[in-house]
Protein backbone atom coordinates (compact mmCIF):
# COMPACT_ATOMS: atom_id res chain seq x y z
CA UNK A 1 0.00 0.00 0.00
CA UNK A 2 1.16 3.53 -0.73
CA UNK A 3 1.77 6.18 1.89
CA UNK A 4 -1.10 8.58 2.48
CA UNK A 5 0.29 11.27 4.74
CA UNK A 6 2.20 14.51 4.69
CA UNK A 7 1.90 18.21 3.84
CA UNK A 8 -1.19 19.56 2.13
CA UNK A 9 -1.32 21.50 -1.10
CA UNK A 10 -4.53 23.54 -1.14
CA UNK A 11 -5.90 24.32 -4.60
CA UNK A 12 -8.84 26.64 -4.09
CA UNK A 13 -10.64 26.19 -7.40
CA UNK A 14 -13.17 23.93 -9.10
CA UNK A 15 -12.91 22.19 -12.48
CA UNK A 16 -9.12 21.82 -12.48
CA UNK A 17 -8.61 19.77 -15.63
CA UNK A 18 -5.99 17.21 -16.59
CA UNK A 19 -4.40 19.62 -19.09
CA UNK A 20 -3.65 21.84 -16.10
CA UNK A 21 -2.38 18.93 -14.04
CA UNK A 22 -0.06 17.76 -16.81
CA UNK A 23 -0.09 19.53 -20.21
CA UNK A 24 -0.64 17.45 -23.36
CA UNK A 25 2.84 18.15 -24.66
CA UNK A 26 4.30 15.76 -22.09
CA UNK A 27 2.14 12.88 -23.29
CA UNK A 28 4.93 11.89 -25.64
CA UNK A 29 6.96 10.79 -22.63
CA UNK A 30 6.93 7.07 -21.99
CA UNK A 31 8.53 7.12 -18.54
CA UNK A 32 6.43 8.23 -15.59
CA UNK A 33 9.42 9.97 -14.00
CA UNK A 34 9.48 12.50 -16.85
CA UNK A 35 6.18 13.95 -15.53
CA UNK A 36 7.70 15.01 -12.23
CA UNK A 37 8.88 18.57 -12.98
CA UNK A 38 5.71 19.48 -14.88
CA UNK A 39 2.95 18.88 -12.34
CA UNK A 40 0.35 21.67 -12.38
CA UNK A 41 2.55 23.68 -14.71
CA UNK A 42 -0.41 25.28 -16.53
CA UNK A 43 -2.72 25.67 -13.54
CA UNK A 44 -4.66 28.93 -13.57
CA UNK A 45 -4.83 29.88 -9.92
CA UNK A 46 -3.95 33.19 -8.40
CA UNK A 47 -0.95 33.11 -6.13
CA UNK A 48 0.01 29.57 -7.14
CA UNK A 49 3.52 28.93 -8.39
CA UNK A 50 4.22 25.32 -9.43
CA UNK A 51 7.96 25.89 -9.05
CA UNK A 52 7.75 26.45 -5.32
CA UNK A 53 4.34 25.28 -4.12
CA UNK A 54 4.40 21.61 -5.10
CA UNK A 55 7.61 20.63 -3.37
CA UNK A 56 7.31 18.61 -0.18
CA UNK A 57 3.56 18.08 -0.54
CA UNK A 58 1.88 14.70 -0.12
CA UNK A 59 -1.81 15.51 -0.45
CA UNK A 60 -3.99 17.82 -2.52
CA UNK A 61 -7.17 19.36 -1.13
CA UNK A 62 -9.38 20.98 -3.74
CA UNK A 63 -12.99 21.73 -4.73
CA UNK A 64 -15.36 20.34 -7.38
CA UNK A 65 -14.87 18.24 -10.50
CA UNK A 66 -11.13 17.76 -10.05
CA UNK A 67 -9.42 16.01 -12.98
CA UNK A 68 -11.99 16.76 -15.66
CA UNK A 69 -11.09 16.63 -19.34
CA UNK A 70 -8.63 14.27 -20.95
CA UNK A 71 -8.49 10.65 -19.77
CA UNK A 72 -4.72 10.76 -19.36
CA UNK A 73 -3.45 8.66 -16.48
CA UNK A 74 -0.38 10.87 -16.69
CA UNK A 75 -2.28 13.13 -14.27
CA UNK A 76 -2.20 10.68 -11.33
CA UNK A 77 1.35 9.70 -12.34
CA UNK A 78 2.50 13.31 -12.21
CA UNK A 79 1.05 13.51 -8.69
CA UNK A 80 2.55 10.16 -7.69
CA UNK A 81 5.99 11.09 -8.98
CA UNK A 82 5.86 14.13 -6.72
CA UNK A 83 4.95 12.01 -3.72
CA UNK A 84 1.28 13.00 -3.76
CA UNK A 85 -0.82 9.85 -3.37
CA UNK A 86 -4.05 11.35 -2.11
CA UNK A 87 -6.44 13.97 -3.46
CA UNK A 88 -9.40 15.16 -1.39
CA UNK A 89 -12.14 17.06 -3.21
CA UNK A 90 -15.86 17.70 -3.14
CA UNK A 91 -16.15 15.79 -6.43
CA UNK A 92 -14.04 14.20 -9.16
CA UNK A 93 -14.37 13.60 -12.87
CA UNK A 94 -15.10 9.91 -13.35
CA UNK A 95 -12.02 8.85 -15.31
CA UNK A 96 -9.57 10.68 -13.08
CA UNK A 97 -11.09 9.15 -9.96
CA UNK A 98 -10.96 5.66 -11.44
CA UNK A 99 -7.36 6.19 -12.58
CA UNK A 100 -6.34 7.12 -9.04
CA UNK A 101 -7.72 3.92 -7.51
CA UNK A 102 -6.47 1.82 -10.44
CA UNK A 103 -2.97 3.03 -9.54
CA UNK A 104 -3.55 2.24 -5.87
CA UNK A 105 -3.90 5.94 -5.02
CA UNK A 106 -6.66 7.60 -3.02
CA UNK A 107 -9.31 10.00 -4.32
CA UNK A 108 -11.52 10.94 -1.39
CA UNK A 109 -14.81 12.76 -1.78
CA UNK A 110 -16.10 14.93 1.05
CA UNK A 111 -19.21 17.07 1.00
CA UNK A 112 -18.97 20.67 -0.21
CA UNK A 113 -19.55 21.88 3.34
CA UNK A 114 -16.78 19.71 4.71
CA UNK A 115 -14.36 20.90 2.05
CA UNK A 116 -15.28 24.52 2.66
CA UNK A 117 -14.70 24.05 6.37
CA UNK A 118 -11.30 22.47 5.74
CA UNK A 119 -10.36 25.41 3.53
CA UNK A 120 -11.59 27.88 6.13
CA UNK A 121 -9.88 26.26 9.10
CA UNK A 122 -6.67 25.02 7.52
CA UNK A 123 -6.34 26.63 4.07
CA UNK A 124 -4.08 29.43 5.21
CA UNK A 125 -1.81 27.36 7.42
CA UNK A 126 0.78 24.69 6.85
CA UNK A 127 -1.43 21.68 7.37
CA UNK A 128 -0.62 17.98 7.40
CA UNK A 129 -2.88 15.10 6.61
CA UNK A 130 -2.75 11.42 7.51
CA UNK A 131 -5.29 9.03 6.03
CA UNK A 132 -6.17 5.77 7.75
CA UNK A 133 -7.57 3.61 4.95
CA UNK A 134 -8.74 0.78 7.24
CA UNK A 135 -10.69 3.08 9.52
CA UNK A 136 -11.74 5.50 6.75
CA UNK A 137 -10.59 8.52 8.69
CA UNK A 138 -8.65 11.59 7.63
CA UNK A 139 -6.65 13.32 10.32
CA UNK A 140 -5.80 16.89 9.49
CA UNK A 141 -3.68 19.11 11.66
CA UNK A 142 -2.04 22.51 11.77
CA UNK A 143 -0.05 24.27 14.44
CA UNK A 144 -3.13 25.18 16.46
CA UNK A 145 -5.69 22.51 15.74
CA UNK A 146 -6.46 18.93 14.81
CA UNK A 147 -9.53 17.51 13.18
CA UNK A 148 -10.75 14.05 12.23
CA UNK A 149 -13.03 13.54 9.28
CA UNK A 150 -14.63 10.26 8.30
CA UNK A 151 -14.91 9.39 4.65
CA UNK A 152 -16.37 6.66 2.49
CA UNK A 153 -14.88 4.61 -0.28
CA UNK A 154 -16.35 1.48 -1.78
CA UNK A 155 -15.13 -1.98 -0.85
CA UNK A 156 -13.94 -2.38 -4.41
CA UNK A 157 -11.83 0.79 -4.22
CA UNK A 158 -10.42 -0.39 -0.90
CA UNK A 159 -9.53 -3.75 -2.49
CA UNK A 160 -7.72 -1.95 -5.32
CA UNK A 161 -5.68 0.10 -2.86
CA UNK A 162 -4.83 -2.94 -0.80
CA UNK A 163 -3.84 -5.19 -3.72
CA UNK A 164 -1.83 -2.43 -5.39
CA UNK A 165 -4.17 -1.68 -8.29
CA UNK A 166 -6.49 -3.08 -10.91
CA UNK A 167 -4.04 -4.96 -13.16
CA UNK A 168 -3.07 -7.47 -10.50
CA UNK A 169 -6.63 -7.73 -9.22
CA UNK A 170 -8.10 -8.38 -12.67
CA UNK A 171 -5.44 -10.80 -13.82
CA UNK A 172 -6.07 -12.86 -10.72
CA UNK A 173 -9.86 -12.80 -10.86
CA UNK A 174 -10.90 -12.80 -14.54
Amino acid sequence: MKIFKGNVLFLDRSDINTDEIIPAKYLTEIEKAAMKPHLLEDLKLEGFDPKTDVQGKACVVTKENFGCGSSREHAPWALEENGINVVIASSFARIFRQNMFNCGMLAIELSKDQINTVFKEFGRSNAQIAVDVEKSVIMIQSKDQTKEIEFQISEFDRALIQTGGWVEYADKNY
Binding site: S71, Q98, V167, A170
Partner: peptide
Protein backbone atom coordinates in the same frame (compact mmCIF):
# COMPACT_ATOMS: atom_id res chain seq x y z
CA UNK B 1 -12.92 6.71 -22.19
CA UNK B 2 -10.62 5.18 -19.60
CA UNK B 3 -7.14 5.68 -18.22
CA UNK B 4 -4.05 3.61 -18.90
CA UNK B 5 -4.60 0.98 -16.22
CA UNK B 6 -8.17 0.28 -17.34
CA UNK B 7 -6.91 0.11 -20.91
CA UNK B 8 -4.20 -2.31 -19.82
CA UNK B 9 -6.71 -4.61 -18.20
Amino acid sequence: GVGTTDLEV
